[in-house]
């Protein structure tokens, strides 16, 4: 049986609640086996600290600062990554010119670019955006490049023989066709962006969730550290869900398999093959179709449906 949506949400909430319960249990009982939970703040400690933070102004400043940084960096990375990926995949000259440089920079962890950012940019703010952008840039670039190279050649040939030029092919074939792959890269990119924006803030930020979390650590305010961590987790979850949802909306044309994990196929309508030439009167789909067609084509249509 496929669980109802409501049941699935309940399950998800229960999973979170169970994790929190376990945390509370281990810390509340001061479990000190091989792992030490006695110094660990309890869920209630953290909740108390959280409530306190929410009423102050600093928390919201941290939040908006971090969000501004990540959204700026990520948006830049999305645009640059897609543009570079398309360019490298479509032009041999671009591949030869940019390829080696990109491949050498790619393995460097973005957070290792902090010294570079400090040297290059006049303000901390720009440095953090730079690091965030670099982090998300490569996953987007690589997936775009792969997606563009894997496009079905017939799509492009079709548009060319319909008179389409380079721009038309870019807009009508390359970008929409590569979109599923691009969104794969964006999903990875937003995750890496969070890691890097938080790390960069810890090193060089003023305000920001990462900065605050590190500050709390230096003054041994452990509940505060956990408030920061929870905030990062929730923000990361929300932003990557937003990317996923947007991606699914824009690629709704993708053929879906009838397989649903752990459940039955979505449409349990029996599709019995009718004998050729016999009007399949009992099949509601064909009836609807027959009504639409309304002329001699109907029979052919019904056959098409069943045989192909």
């Amino acid at each position: 049986m496929t669980p109802r949506p409501l049941a699935r949400y309940a399950l998800r909430v229960a999973s979170l609640a169970a994790a929190l319960g376990l945390w509370q249990l281990l810390t509340g009982l001061d479990v000190d086996l091989w792992l030490h939970f006695s110094q660990f703040p309890t869920v209630t400690d953290v909740a108390g600290a959280f409530a306190e933070r929410l009423t102050g102004t600093d928390y919201w400043t941290d939040l908006t600062d971090s969000l501004t940084r990540i959204l700026t960096g990520f948006a830049l990375a999305a645009v640059l990554g897609v543009a570079t990926g398309v360019l490298v995949a479509r032009s041999r000259l671009a591949e030869d010119l940019l390829g080696p440089v990109l491949e050498v920079i790619r393995p460097i962890p973005a957070i290792a670019l902090v010294p570079v950012a400090i040297l290059l940019f006049p303000s901390n703010e720009q440095g953090i955006v730079f690091i965030t952008c670099t982090a998300a840039f490569f996953p987007v670039l690589v997936s775009t490049r792969h997606a563009v190279r894997a496009l079905t050649p017939a799509w492009e040939e079709a548009v060319r023989t319909l008179g389409g030029g380079r721009l038309r092919i870019l807009g009508s074939v390359v970008l929409p066709g590569a979109l599923p792959g691009i969104f794969g890269g964006l999903s990875v990119g937003i995750g890496v962006s969070w890691i890097c924006v938080i790390s960069a803030e810890m090193i060089s930020g003023q305000y920001g969730v990462g900065y605050r979390t590190w500050q709390d650590y230096t003054v041994v305010n452990y509940p505060g550290v956990f408030v920061g961590m929870v905030t990062i987790g929730v923000l990361g979850w929300v932003t990557s869900t937003a990317v996923e949802v947007l991606g699914r909306r824009l690629t709704r044309w993708l053929p879906r398999t009838s397989y649903t994990p752990g459940g039955r196929p979505r449409t349990p309508v029996p599709r019995v093959a009718a004998p050729v030439g016999v009007r399949a009167g009992s099949d509601p789909e064909n009836q609807a179709e027959a009504q639409h067609q309304g002329h001699d084509d109907t029979e052919q249509e019904a056959r098409d449906e069943h045989l192909v």
């Binding site: 079709a158 008179g163 929409p176 066709g177 690629t251 044309w253």
Partner: peptide
């Protein structure tokens, strides 16, 4: 050229 249209065997319709 748009003056010479090509119909393919495989799916050349843009799926989106």
């Amino acid at each position: 050229s748009a003056d010479r249209a090509l119909v393919f065997q495989e799916d050349a319709l843009l799926p989106w």
